Amino acid sequence: MKINVHVLGRYGISSLLLAGCCHFVYAGQTIYQLRDSNGSTLLTNKKSRYNHLQVEKKTYYPDSNIHSYSNWGSSEASVLPSYSRNKNAYDSIIRQASQTYGVSEGLIKAVMHTESGFNVHARSPVGAQGLMQLMPATARRFNVSNAYDPQQNIMAGAKYLAWLLKRFNGNTSLALAGYNAGEGNVSKYGGIPPFRETQDYVRRVTSRYQNLYTEGLSTNSISPSPASSQGRIIASSDNYSTGSTTAANIQAAKYQRQIIAQADGSFTDAPAGSYATANATASAKIYLSE
């Protein structure tokens, strides 16, 4: 079978002229099957260049984000040492994206953890870029001009997740499968596609979300810490009672409430000696404005 390949446009292969049939998949593009005057079949993603030919079939191949990703360490929590300092560096953008598009902060961070290990310069062998590993077609779809810019990358990744969650009626597993393998493949197979990479991806992100980020972006330490050590005390109350009346604690504990100005400009009224863990905290946050 003789195949003439015409290289046109920025996509590399724009058309194939062949005297027979050929299996052709082009992610993120519509492929048109045209009939030439000599009876040959023409496959192209540039229909406008062949308006004189009859369209026999057109097929859209959704963009796919499937690519090999790193485990980023032997445990769910670990990342490569060189990027461990970045684990919380983008939390403010994640929070903004969450509020803008209504996607859980923890889910966005779990996807980022799995996709790039918090490496802002990450690039996969198939071209996925940045923290949320956006494929070029996905970046264009969400108007990203620089996929390595954290703000643009995270906002686009969250917007795509929001779109997928809406499409799949809030089913997080299907949304994650769509993020990795393309929404077309999820629809085609009626669920998580039978791709080992995608199935592993969904398990990995879900596990990190449930075990690391289900409480959002909280990264408080487990050890106790006096409230006065968090910042400058700007106001203090008299001792107050917790009101506990359990048999084990008839005598109510006493704490002194304080308003503390922290180094980052925020305020807290955490009582002295309070405890905080990844899953619970005794601290109460307050926000003051002039």
Rank of each mutant, 00 (worst) to 15 (best):
N249E: 10
Y148S: 03
K254V: 14
K57V: 00
I3D: 05
A276H: 00
G102I: 10
Y275P: 00
P150R: 06
M155S: 09
R85K: 12
P193G: 02
P224M: 03
R10A: 15
Q96V: 00
N51M: 08
N38L: 08
N119C: 06
E215G: 01
T214H: 15
L131D: 06
A175R: 03
R49V: 01
I233K: 00
F24L: 14
A248L: 07
Y189N: 05
N146M: 10
C22I: 15
R204S: 07
R95L: 08
I259T: 10
S68K: 09
A270H: 09
T242D: 15
S74R: 14
I250Q: 11
A110F: 04
F118T: 02
I286C: 08
R141C: 01
T114Q: 11
M135S: 05
V205P: 01
S14Y: 14
R141N: 14
A278Y: 13
Q129R: 15
V202T: 10
R141W: 11
T219W: 09
S116Q: 09
L18R: 06
S124C: 12
G102R: 09
S14M: 12
R141V: 01
S78T: 15
Y101N: 01
P224R: 00
F142R: 04
S229W: 04
P150W: 07
A235I: 07
S116L: 04
V126Y: 09
T214N: 13
Y189F: 12
T246W: 10
P150Q: 05
S40Q: 15
A89G: 05
F267G: 00
S237F: 07
R196N: 11
L34C: 02
S225Y: 09
R167E: 15
S78D: 12
